[in-house]
Amino acid sequence: MFVELNELLHASPERPEQGTFTLLRDTRTDGSFLVHHFLSFYLKAGCKVCFVALIQSFSHYNVVAQKLGVSLPAAKERGQLVFLEGLKSCFEVLFKEEPPTGQPNPLQFIREGGSNLKALYEFVRTSLTPSESDSWKCPVLLVDDVSVLLSLGMRPVDVLDFIHYCRATVCSQLKGNVVVLVHSREDSDDTENELVVNALCHQSNLILWAEGLATGYCKDIHGQLKIIPRGPAVLSTERDLPRTYQYKIQDRNVTFFARGMSAAVL
C-alpha cells in the first residue's frame, strides 16, 4: 500500500469505498505496481479479497506483498484471501484428469473451445458471497490481468460478459469493489484488446492510467499516472477533474510528484 497514492485517491483503509469499479490501465509501461497496491490496501482494510492472478505465481505476489507489509499465506489461512493461481490452474486443466465430482475448474474454458467464462464467474461469486460467520468489511475482486483472457482465446464479448456479471454481483449486489488491470496500446493493431479497454472504460467509476514517458526511459521518472474519475456529469466537482502525476517506483514505495517536478530535474 502506497501512502502517497492513497492521498491522491482520497482513500483510506479505515473507510474503503464500496460499489466502485476501478480500471487499471497501462500503456508502454508495467502497471502491476497498482495491483500490488490495491491487494495490500484491501487486505489491510479488512476486506474479503478474491484475487484472480493470471500473470504471476503466488510466490511472486507474496514476495512483493511482504515488502508492503502483508502476508498472503496468513491471509489465505484466515480465509480473507481467495487466490486463483492461473498458471497452476492452466496446467491442471490441460494435463490432469478432471475429477469426476466437485467444482469444475474455473479455467476450464481453455480446454472447451467456444465456451464462455461462466465457470470463472461462478468461482468468483461463490468465493465472495459472505457466509454467516464472516466479519470482513466488503468483498473485493482483483483481476491481473484481463488481457490474458483474450490471449487464451476468449472473444472480447466473453470477457465483457464476465466483467459485467462481476460488476453486477460484487459492486451492485454485495456492495463491494472490482479492480481490473488491462494492457492497452493506442497505436497497436489489436482491435479486440482496444475494444475491451474502451468498453471497460465506459463501465468504470475510476481509471488509473499508467503510461510510459513519451520521451523514453528515464532513471528517475518511471512514468506518469492519470487519475480519471468517471461519474455522473451533474455530480462532478473540481476534485473529479482528471489529474496527471509522474511517479518513481522504489524498493518498498512509489513517490508521486507533479509533472516536471522530479527531484532529479529540479
Binding site: 472504460c201 468517471r230 455522473p232 456529469a233
Partner: peptide, 11 residues
Amino acid sequence: TVDCEGRSLLQ
C-alpha cells in the same frame, strides 16, 4: 465517448 459520458444527458 470515454472522454465525455452521455448518461447524464439521457437522464
